[in-house]
Each structure stands twice: as structure tokens, then as C-alpha cells.
């Protein structure tokens, strides 16, 4: 029913070899001219700025027209000894992990429940909707809901649950509320992503499982999970990238009139504050901002590698 397809690449290599000869030579001559425009664009717009970013992380600079000076690894040393940077680093990791777990649980629930639910397609569309809305709009809307006089506290008051009314946007709770907003905003995308893999599983596999007496949870454990593992790994990698970069929704929560409190700062927010010099026309610290960018990239790569390692097994396919 489910087969290991680890031997397939050899067959593919055989097909490539068989396609040699005159046609193959002609293809090789076409290769470079066709590749060149994309390669130039890639080098100019991605590789060169990336290298410049890394180089900048070893310098002190406030932008065009200002003095540029090399500082070696001082920016990295400054970051590692900075209480603020370490706090935003911790916030970023916490947000990525906690929201990641929440998204995984929602995706699992969707894989179990939506496959057989009568209104599955509708529910899928409904949960996807928040993902289509700009994070700025989501942040603004959610923050007004959680305002002291907002809907959340009003509903709690009407329900007689006054003891549960809280200053949600205060320094103690704001980060948790932001995480709720991120889950609400991002869940739909990951549900749709994993459900697209679930949709590809032949119904006959579930029929056999049912005939053999498997419960919904067992069907998930022995059919859905093994056949969607690759998609879950992709989703985890995509979330790692998005989680580390969480930015707009926080700015929307805090608004454009102030700077985010330490409790709500992520690495991307910290980088933004250094790029802009804050909200009151401060001098940009582009070297430190670039160093934060390098650290963010390193964390993202580490998380992706980690998630791939955890998920690494021979690819399975139904037959």
C-alpha cells in the first residue's frame, strides 16, 4: 500500500543519459543564453545585496553621505552583550516555537476533522480568509478588540466575567495577545497547505483502514501522517522563516506613534529600530541592523535544518 521510493533517482539518471546525442548538445548550447538573464538578475538583486549586508555587519554606517568605518566583529559583540538584543532574540524564538506548536496542532486537528467533515471546503476557505488580510490590518483590528474598552473586555463584562477583564495591551500581556493574533492570521495558510497533501491520498486507503477497524485518530496516525510528512516538513520550514521575520503585526499592535515595548520586540522589530533610528529621526545604525539580519538568517537556516532532520525519513508513496 505504501512503498519506499528511495531507488527512483537511479531510474531518472538513466533517462537523462538516454537523452544524449545531437539534441543533448543543442540543449547544452542553449543553456547559457537562456540562463544568463535570470542569473544576472539573481546575482544583482539577491546575491550582491546579501553579500553587502554581510560586509556591512562588520562596519559602522548611517547611510549614504555618512562616514563608513570598519569595526570588525564589534557589532556582533555588541549584540551578544546587549540585554535588549537577547530579550528580542528570546521573544523571537518563543514566538516561533509557541505559535509553531499552535499552528501544528491546528493543522493536525484540520487533517483529522476536515477530511471527513461535510462543510470541510467551506471551513477551509473560512480559516484561510485571515491569511489574505494584511498583517497590519489584522494587528490593528485585534489590538482594538483587546483595547481596555474594546470588544473582548465588553463581552467579558456582559457575560458577568468581570474578573477576567484584563489590560490586554499592557506590557505584561501584549506579547501573548500578539501571538494569538499571529496564530489567527497564519493558521489558514498552514491548514490549506497540509490539507492539499491530505487531498492527494487515495480514499481507498482510508476505506481499508476503516474496514480494519481503525479509528479517526488511528487513520491519522497510520495513513495521513506518513503520507503528508513531506508537506508538514515544508510547512514547518515556511513557518520557521515567517516566524523569525515576524514584524508588521507587532508594529500594527503598537501603532506608528511609539516604539514597541521591550516585551513585544522581536529581532525584526529590533532591526527596524536600528535601521530607522527609532521614531523620532534618530541616526540609523546600519551595521548593527545588518548584524541582526545575519543572525536572523543563521537562526532561520538552523531551524529549517533542524525541522528537516526531525522529519528525515525515506520518502513514502502509495502504490
Amino acid at each position: 500500500m505504501v512503498a519506499d521510493i528511495g531507488a527512483r533517482p537511479a531510474a531518472r539518471r538513466g533517462r537523462v543519459k538516454a537523452a544524449g546525442g545531437a539534441l543533448h548538445g543543442e540543449r547544452r548550447r542553449l543553456y547559457l543564453p537562456l540562463l544568463l538573464p535570470a542569473l544576472i538578475a539573481y546575482l544583482l538583486f539577491f546575491v550582491a545585496p546579501s553579500i553587502f549586508g554581510v560586509v556591512l555587519s562588520f562596519a559602522e554606517w548611517s547611510g549614504l553621505g555618512t562616514e563608513f568605518s570598519w569595526v570588525g566583529i564589534a557589532n556582533y559583540a555588541e549584540l551578544l552583550s546587549s540585554r535588549i538584543f537577547l530579550s528580542s532574540f528570546l521573544n523571537t524564538v518563543l514566538l516561533t516555537l509557541i505559535v509553531g506548536v499552535a499552528l501544528f496542532l491546528i493543522a493536525v486537528a484540520a487533517m483529522v476533522a476536515l477530511r471527513t467533515a461535510r462543510a470541510g471546503a467551506f471551513i477551509r476557505s473560512a480559516v484561510f480568509l485571515p491569511f489574505m488580510i494584511s498583517p497590519i490590518a489584522v494587528g490593528l483590528a485585534v489590538s482594538f478588540l483587546f483595547n481596555p474598552k474594546g470588544m473582548v473586555n465588553s463581552v467579558l463584562g456582559l457575560a458577568g466575567l468581570d474578573a477576567l477583564r484584563q489590560p490586554w495591551l499592557g506590557p505584561e500581556l501584549i506579547f501573548r495577545v500578539i501571538m494569538v493574533g499571529v496564530v489567527w492570521s497564519a493558521a489558514g495558510f498552514y491548514v490549506v497547505l497540509v490539507m492539499s497533501a491530505v487531498d492527494g491520498i487515495p480514499p481507498s486507503l482510508y476505506e481499508v483502514a476503516r474496514i480494519e477497524g481503525a479509528s479517526l485518530i488511528q487513520q491519522f496516525r497510520y495513513v495521513t501522517l506518513p503520507l503528508t510528512r513531506d508537506m508538514i516538513a515544508i510547512a514547518a520550514a515556511l513557518w520557521a522563516i515567517a516566524g523569525i521575520k515576524t514584524f508588521e503585526i507587532i508594529i500594527a499592535f503598537v501603532g506608528t506613534a511609539g516604539t514597541p515595548p521591550l516585551e513585544a520586540r522581536t529581532l525584526a522589530v529590533e532591526q527596524y529600530l536600528r535601521v530607522t533610528g527609532g521614531r523620532v529621526g534618530g541616526m540609523a545604525q546600519l551595521g548593527e541592523a545588518a548584524a541582526i539580519g545575519v543572525v536572523m538568517t543563521a537562526i532561520t537556516v538552523a531551524l529549517i535544518v533542524l525541522s528537516r532532520r526531525i522529519q528525515r525519513r525515506d520518502r513514502l508513496e502509495w502504490s
Binding site: P171, L262, R274, G278, V280, G282
Partner: peptide, 29 residues
């Protein structure tokens, strides 16, 4: 000047030290 011009010449101190501490003081924590 607004905040003695500190926000423009010492943004890191202003954003990372002064404003967060002031929030705690005025917030009563």
C-alpha cells in the same frame, strides 16, 4: 528641543534604556 534632542543623537539609549524604564515608572511597576 523635544527630549533634549537625545532621540536623534543617542537613539539606542533613548529607545532601549530611557523609554522602557520610563514606561515602568509611569506604569507604576
Amino acid at each position: 528641543l523635544d527630549f533634549d534632542g537625545v532621540a536623534t543623537v543617542a537613539p539606542k539609549w533613548f529607545n532601549d534604556v530611557f523609554l522602557p524604564l520610563d514606561d515602568k515608572l509611569i506604569g507604576g511597576s
